[in-house]
Nucleic acid binder design. Structure first.
Length: 874
RNA sequence: GGGGGCAUAGCUCAGUUGGUUAGAGCGCAUGCUUCACAUGCAUGAGGUCACAGGUUCGAGCCCUGUUGUCCCCACCA
C-alpha cells in the first residue's frame, strides 16, 4: 500500500476506481427475490447532447440516492439511456448536411436515416462517457435507447392500443407549424417571446353599397385565407353590418360579416378578420359559422396559389407587398407599432405558424383524468408537493396532443393505407396485405411520432414491456423519478398517463423535482448567452466529488441554485479535510493492532464522538429518505469537520502521543470506527474519495460501495455522557476566549483555577482540557480569590474559571466583559421568566418544553449569582 | 388573464409537523508556520427573518392583505 499523499488529488484515482466498480459489476442490478427492489430510471439525455450543469446535478442527485439505497441493502436498478430526440437530432443532422452542400431531400428518407444513425453512433457514446466521469453508478448493461428494438416495440404496442381504443385519431386541426423544420409541433414545443410587430388597419369595403369595415391585424398576409369578418353581437356600432358581405381586398372574393362572442369590442377596431386556416381562435369561429377553411401558405412558409399573385413569395415578403398594394389602393388606414407574443420553434426558433393541417392526435381528456386522480390519491407524490399544482394545472387545461411530425428521424407511425380500397390499417407489425380487400398495395404513413411519445413509455419500455419480463415484474413500478420542474409538462405528465393507461400502475411512487442550475449572477445557463460552465472542465480541475458535493450543498428540493467556483472550492477543501483526517488515522495506526470498538475501554471523549456519530447517522438517514440531499450533506460536513476533525482528532492526541499503549490502541479503535462510518455516510455524496480512502484503512477489505450503510444504534447513543462532555468542550472554549480577550498569546500555558461541583468529570478529562485549552495545570479552589488579584474569570455550565494573568489583565476591561456577560444572562432570565409567568404557556405547552424552560431559568439564575459575585470580588 | 416561486447576516443560501439564545458556506476582523490538513487552526463582529394586520400560550414557519422580484401557462385579432 502506497502512502497517502499530503493533499487530496482526485486525478490519481477517480478513473481507476470507476473502472474497478464497472469491472466488478457493482452497478449491475439483479432481480433478487431476497431483496426489495429500488428502481430509478435516468431521464435520458439527448443522444447527441453534451453534459451540462443541469445534467450534472440531476445525475448527482440520482446517484446519491441510488448509492444510499444500495448500501441499505435494496436491489437497486438505475437504468441509463439516451433519447433519439427526433426533432433536435434531425435539425442537427440537416445542418451538418447543409454544410456539406446536401439538402436532406436529395438523400431521401433512407439515405437520411443512414446519416442520422451514423451521427448517433458517433455522438451517442459521448454523453455516456461523460456520465461516467461524474461517478454515476448506473447499470450500463441495461443501457437503453428510445429507438432500440425494445423501446420501438413498446411504441408500436402503445400506439396500437390507443388507436384501437379510439384514443388516437387523425384529423385536420389547427396545429403549430414550424416552417423551418417543416413539421407540426405540440403545444409544449412552442416557446413564446415578445416581438416588436405592427398592427395594420385595413379597410374591407361593403359589397354592393357604400361603407366599409376596418379590421386590424398583425399578420396581413393571412388575409387571403379570410372567410369572414366578425363583430361582437352586442356591438351596436356594427349591428347593421351583420349578415351583409364585404369584399376581400386584393382578391375578388366576397365574405360575410358574422356576429360572434369571441370578438372583444374594446380591442382594435372591434371588427376581426376571420382566417380559420391560420389562427386557432378563428378556426373555432369558423366552425361555429360553418365558414370555409382556406389555407394560403405552403409548408415552407411561402404563399400558395390561393394567395393569387403573391403565390410563391415568402410569408414576410408577401406581407410587405400586400401592405404596399393596400396602401396604393387607399385601403390601408394606418399602421401602429404593436408588441405581441409570437410563438417560436423550440428547436430552430423559426416563427411558428398556426396552420390547419391533417395530423395524428391523442385524445387527452380520458387519459388526463386518471393521471390527475393518481396524484390526488397520493399514488404518486411530488417532492416538494407544490409541484403537484403545476401538474394539475397542465392536465386540467390540456388539449389533444398532436403526435405526428413531418420528420424522418423517429418512430414511424404504424399505420398503413391501402391503395386499392383506401382502408387505414394500424398494426404492430408491417402488414403484407390489406385485411379488408386483400390488396397488396400498402403504403405506410410518412410521419414519425413526437419524440415524447416514446419517452412517455420510458419507465416500462426499457424493462421489456409489453412482455412480462423478469425485469418488468421485479423492477416496475419505479420508485423515484428525479427531474427538473421545466420538464413536468413534457415528460412527467406523459409518463404518468402512459404508465397508468398501459400498465395499470403509476410509473413511479415519488417525483423528486429539482430546479435549474444558474450562473453566478443568477442567469439561466444557455448556449446563446455563452455563460454555460462545462462540468467536465470543473471535474478536470477539482475532481468529480467536489463538483458533486458543490451541486448538492445548500440546495432545497425544487429550488434553483447557482453554480459558483467558490462552492466547488469549498467542497474541495472539505474533501481535502476528510482526506487528511483519514491520513492522520492511517499514519497513526501504522504498526498498531487496532482493536474493534467493542474491545475498547471508552473514555468520555470517545463516548461523546460515538454519540455524535449516532446522531449524525440518524439525521442523515432521515434526510436522505425524504430526499433532503442538501440537509443531509450539511449535517455530514458539519459532523465530519467540526465534531470529528476539530474536536475528536485533537482530543485523541494525548492518548496517541502518550506512553500508554492501551490508551493509544483504544483511541485508534474509536478513530477508525468513527472514520469508517463517516466514510460510509459520505460515500453516496463523494463516492470516489471515500472509496480511495476506504482502501487505505487498516483491517478493511472490499469496496465501500458494497458496505452496509451505518445504522443508528441506541446502545451507542450515550446521551447522558455526551451531554456531560459538552460541559468540557464549553470549558475549553471559554478558556480560549478568555485568553483572546486579554491578548494572551495562544502558546502561553495558563494555570486554571476552577470552582466546581463537577470535579470528577473535569479530572477525567484533565488531559483534554490541558491540551486543547492550552493550560499548564488545574487547581480546584473554593473561590476565585484563591487565584490571586489579577485574574480573568468566566462562568461555565460546569464550573467557574479563574486565570491569573498578571499584567495582561486590565481590571476595568475585565469588569466590562463580565458585565456584558451578565447583561446577556439577565436578558435570558427575563425571557425565560416571562415565558414561565405566562399562564397560557405553562398550561398549554408540552410539559417537556416547560420543564426545559424552568431548567434554563434556574441555570441562568445560578450564572447570574456567580457573575455578580465575581464582579464584586474584582 | 390564470398558476406558481422567491424576499432570512455584506454575498450565496439552509431552516423538517409552529416550541432552546435563528444557522451554514464565502467574505470580513484579530491572532496563530502546535509534528493530518494554510485547500488549515482559534477567537470574534455581523440579522427589526420585505411591510401591515390576524390566528396561537408561542410565528422566520400558518392565514389575509400590501410591496418588490422571478418563472410557467394562456393570449386581443
Amino acid at each position: 500500500m502506497t502512502e497517502m499523499q499530503k493533499t487530496y488529488n482526485p486525478k490519481d484515482f477517480e478513473d481507476r476506481i470507476y473502472a474497478d466498480w464497472v469491472k466488478n459489476g457493482y452497478f449491475t442490478a439483479k432481480a433478487d427475490p431476497e431483496k426489495v427492489p429500488f428502481t430509478v430510471m435516468m431521464p435520458p439525455p439527448n443522444v447527441t447532447g453534451q453534459l451540462h450543469m443541469g445534467h450534472a446535478m440531476d445525475e448527482t442527485m440520482q446517484d446519491t440516492i441510488v448509492r444510499f439505497k444500495r448500501m441499505q441493502g435494496y436491489s437497486v436498478l438505475w437504468l441509463p439511456g439516451t433519447d433519439h430526440a427526433s426533432i433536435a437530432t434531425e435539425v442537427k443532422v440537416t445542418e451538418q448536411l447543409k454544410k456539406e452542400g446536401i439538402a436532406k431531400e436529395e438523400l431521401g428518407r433512407e439515405g437520411f436515416l443512414q446519416r442520422a444513425w451514423a451521427w448517433k453512433e458517433k455522438y451517442g457514446g459521448r454523453i455516456v462517457e461523460q456520465l461516467k466521469k461524474l461517478g454515476s453508478s448506473c447499470d450500463w448493461t441495461r443501457l437503453a435507447f428510445t429507438m432500440d428494438e425494445r423501446c420501438s416495440n413498446a411504441v408500436r404496442e402503445a400506439f396500437f392500443r390507443l388507436y384501437r381504443k379510439g384514443l388516437i385519431y387523425r384529423g385536420s386541426r389547427i396545429i403549430n407549424w414550424c416552417p423551418g423544420c417543416k413539421t407540426a409541433l405540440s403545444d409544449a414545443e412552442v416557446e413564446y417571446s415578445e416581438d416588436a410587430g405592427h398592427f395594420w388597419y385595413i379597410r374591407y369595403p361593403l359589397e354592393g353599397e357604400e361603407g366599409f369595415l376596418t379590421v386590424a391585424t398583425t399578420r396581413p398576409e393571412t388575409m387571403f385565407g379570410d372567410t369572414a369578418v366578425a363583430v361582437n353581437p352586442k356591438d351596436k356600432r356594427f349591428a347593421s353590418f351583420v349578415g351583409k358581405n364585404v369584399r376581400l381586398p386584393l382578391t375578388d372574393r366576397v365574405i360575410p360579416v358574422v356576429a360572434d362572442e369571441y370578438v372583444d369590442p374594446e380591442f382594435g377596431t372591434g371588427a376581426v378578420k376571420i382566417t380559420p386556416a391560420h389562427d386557432p381562435n378563428d378556426f373555432e369561429v369558423g366552425m361555429r359559422h360553418s365558414l370555409p377553411v382556406i389555407r394560403v401558405m405552403n409548408d415552407d412558409g411561402t404563399m400558395n396559389e390561393l394567395a393569387g399573385k403573391y403565390a410563391g413569395l415568402d410569408r414576410y415578403e408577401a406581407r410587405k407587398q400586400a401592405v404596399s398594394d393596400l396602401e396604393a389602393q387607399g385601403l390601408l388606414v394606418k399602421v401602429e407599432a404593436h408588441a405581441h407574443n409570437v410563438g417560436h420553434c423550440y428547436r430552430c426558433h423559426s416563427t411558428v405558424e398556426p396552420i390547419v393541417s391533417k395530423q395524428w392526435f391523442v385524445r387527452m381528456a380520458p387519459l388526463a383524468k386518471p393521471a390527475i386522480d393518481a396524484v390526488v390519491k397520493n399514488k404518486t407524490k411530488f417532492v416538494p408537493d407544490r409541484f403537484a399544482k403545476i401538474y394539475y394545472n397542465w392536465l386540467e387545461n390540456i388539449r389533444d396532443w398532436c403526435i405526428s411530425r413531418q420528420l424522418w428521424w423517429g418512430h414511424r407511425i404504424p399505420v398503413w393505407y391501402c391503395a386499392d380500397c383506401g382502408e387505414e390499417i394500424c398494426s404492430r407489425s408491417t402488414p403484407a396485405v390489406c385485411p379488408k380487400c386483400g390488396g397488396a398495395h400498402l403504403t405506410q404513413d410518412e410521419d414519425v411520432l413526437d419524440t415524447w411519445f416514446s419517452s412517455a413509455l420510458w419507465p416500462f419500455s426499457t424493462l421489456g414491456w409489453p412482455q412480462e419480463t423478469e425485469d418488468f415484474k421485479y423492477f416496475y413500478p419505479t420508485d423515484v423519478l428525479v427531474t427538473g420542474y421545466d420538464i413536468i409538462p413534457f415528460w412527467v405528465m406523459r409518463m404518468m398517463f402512459s404508465g397508468i393507461e398501459y400498465t395499470g400502475k403509476v410509473p413511479f411512487r415519488d417525483v423528486l423535482i429539482h430546479g435549474l442550475v444558474r450562473d453566478e449572477q443568477g442567469r439561466k445557463m444557455s448556449k446563446s448567452l455563452g455563460n454555460g460552465i462545462d462540468p467536465l472542465e470543473v471535474i478536470e480541475k477539482y475532481g468529480a466529488d467536489s463538483l458533486r458535493l458543490a451541486l448538492l450543498t445548500g440546495v432545497a428540493p425544487g429550488n434553483d441554485t447557482r453554480y459558483t467556483d467558490g462552492k466547488v472550492e469549498a467542497s474541495r477543501n472539505f474533501i481535502n479535510k476528510v482526506w487528511n483526517a483519514a491520513r492522520f488515522v492511517v499514519m497513526n495506526a501504522e504498526g498498531v493492532d487496532v482493536p474493534a470498538l467493542e474491545e475498547v475501554k471508552l473514555q468520555p471523549a470517545d463516548r461523546w464522538i460515538i454519540a455524535r456519530l449516532q446522531m449524525c447517522i440518524r439525521e442523515v438517514t432521515v434526510a436522505l429518505q425524504k430526499y433532503d440531499l442538501g440537509i443531509a450533506a450539511d449535517k455530514l460536513t458539519d459532523f465530519m469537520w467540526n465534531d470529528f476533525c476539530d474536536w475528536y482528532i485533537e482530543l485523541s492526541k494525548p492518548a496517541l502521543y502518550g506512553e500508554d499503549a492501551e490508551k493509544k490502541r483504544g483511541a485508534l479503535g474509536v478513530l477508525l470506527f468513527v472514520l469508517k462510518n463517516a466514510l460510509k455516510l459520505l460515500h453516496p455524496f463523494i463516492p470516489f474519495v471515500t472509496e480511495e480512502i476506504y482502501g487505505y484503512l487498516p483491517g478493511v477489505s472490499g469496496s465501500i460501495m458494497t458496505a452496509e450503510y451505518p445504522r443508528y444504534n441506541s446502545r451507542l447513543s450515550y446521551k447522558k455522557e455526551a451531554k456531560a462532555f459538552e460541559g468540557i468542550i464549553d470549558v475549553i472554549k471559554s478558556v480560549r476566549a478568555m485568553k483572546v480577550a486579554v491578548n494572551c498569546p495562544p502558546a502561553k500555558k495558563v494555570h486554571l483555577f476552577l470552582v466546581s461541583e463537577a470535579k470528577r468529570l473535569i479530572n477525567l478529562n484533565k488531559g483534554a482540557i490541558l491540551r486543547l485549552a492550552g493550560a499548564s495545570e488545574i487547581d480546584f479552589v473554593e473561590s476565585g480569590a484563591k487565584a490571586g488579584e489579577k485574574t480573568v474569570s468566566q462562568v461555565c455550565e460546569i464550573c467557574q474559571i479563574f486565570i491569573p494573568l498578571g499584567e495582561l489583565v486590565d481590571i476595568e476591561e475585565e469588569r466590562q466583559r463580565l458585565q456584558k456577560e451578565l447583561d446577556r444572562v439577565m436578558n435570558e432570565i427575563a425571557r425565560a421568566g416571562g415565558k414561565l409567568a405566562n399562564a397560557g404557556f405553562v398550561a398549554k405547552a408540552p410539559k417537556k418544553l416547560v420543564d426545559d424552560e424552568r431548567a434554563k431559568l434556574e441555570k441562568f439564575l445560578d450564572m447570574k449569582a456567580k457573575l455578580e459575585k465575581q464582579l464584586a470580588e474584582l
